[in-house]
């Protein structure tokens, strides 16, 4: 699949400094041809601004902290750019995973296969075009 025209924003909602997950995922997405815009540790405002300014096709959130912080980011992105898909990963415990899924966010907890993440990115970015 040609992913070269698709742009994915990657952001980390927390200030906790765990980079393993987002680094590996960003590389896998780039290897699959996507353009990945990594903005690192970002507040909700930063994420929304980048999602709008960079005209991305998908937003990926790395979540290391409380689910409310992530939910705020999700809600704000969905408000600013209705229909823009989001997916998320990180140490997302079961109760938080359900809350994200209820908002239509695909969630990849630790142990997820990179192939599944890439497949999700392809499905989410190509569905509307």
């Amino acid at each position: 699949m040609d992913n070269s025209q698709k742009r994915i924003l990657m952001a980390k909602t927390g200030l906790d400094g765990h980079w393993r997950g987002p680094t590996i995922v960003a590389r896998a997405l780039r290897d699959a041809g996507f353009e990945v815009i990594m903005i690192g540790m970002a507040s909700t405002d930063d994420i929304v601004r980048a999602a709008v300014d960079e005209d991305v096709d998908l937003v990926g959130l790395n979540i290391g902290g409380h689910i409310n912080v992530a939910l705020r980011a999700v809600n704000s992105v969905q408000e600013a750019r209705p229909g823009l898909p989001l997916f998320a990963g990180g140490t997302v415990p079961p109760h938080a995973m359900k809350q994200l899924q209820a908002l239509g966010v695909e969630v990849f907890p630790p142990g997820s296969q990179l192939a599944a993440i890439v497949e999700s990115a392809e499905r989410l970015t190509h569905r509307s075009s």
Binding site: D16, G17, V69
Partner: peptide
């Protein structure tokens, strides 16, 4: 708490306030 400690921020720093629920998790 890593949000405040690692960055030497008080809790009223904007980067902390915007993630208030994370405070105390680590």
């Amino acid at each position: 708490d890593r949000n405040t400690a690692d960055h030497c921020y008080n809790v009223d720093h904007p980067d902390v306030v915007s993630r208030r629920e994370d405070v105390g998790l680590t």
